[in-house]
Amino acid sequence: MRSTRAQPKVSAKLALGSAFFQGEHLVKEKKSRSVAKATSPTTGQMGPELKEALDKFVSDNKLVLFMKGTKDFPQCGFSNTCVQILNQFGAPYETVNVLEDEAIRQGMKEYSSWPTFPQMYIDGEFYGGCDIMIETYQSGELQEEIEKTMAS
């Protein structure tokens, strides 16, 4: 019963969208409550409400990086690399700190079918992890993709 009750909290938090992620104070205020088990860590099953909230979040924001830490304080070298790459373009992007929320951290692995972080979303679609960001940054494909997305 506990898990079903906890689900709406997490999705409601995500549904706050950019307003939530722009306000670090909101993250901190909600932190104690937000680590509710929206997914069951044992089965890895993701609740439909969390899935919907993620669908909405990645389609409302053209560029989203799910990462460890924040833009200003990445807490993992791979996440830092992606932030540095994204900063080159000057396009606005959102970041989600997966270390702040275990439900999102576990849920995103399933949502993207991708085992690690960071995870980059462009225009609602999973684009890749750090290696793909580096590869496509160097080849110029990433810039093309971002310019195309920002112009649309």
Partner: peptide, 26 residues
Amino acid sequence: KPLEKHRLVNNALAEEMKTIHALSIK
């Protein structure tokens, strides 16, 4: 495509990834 190739590798190591913390694919 790059993403599909990376997915093939991730999937091949799905079981092992449970204990591997980081996998970088060059």
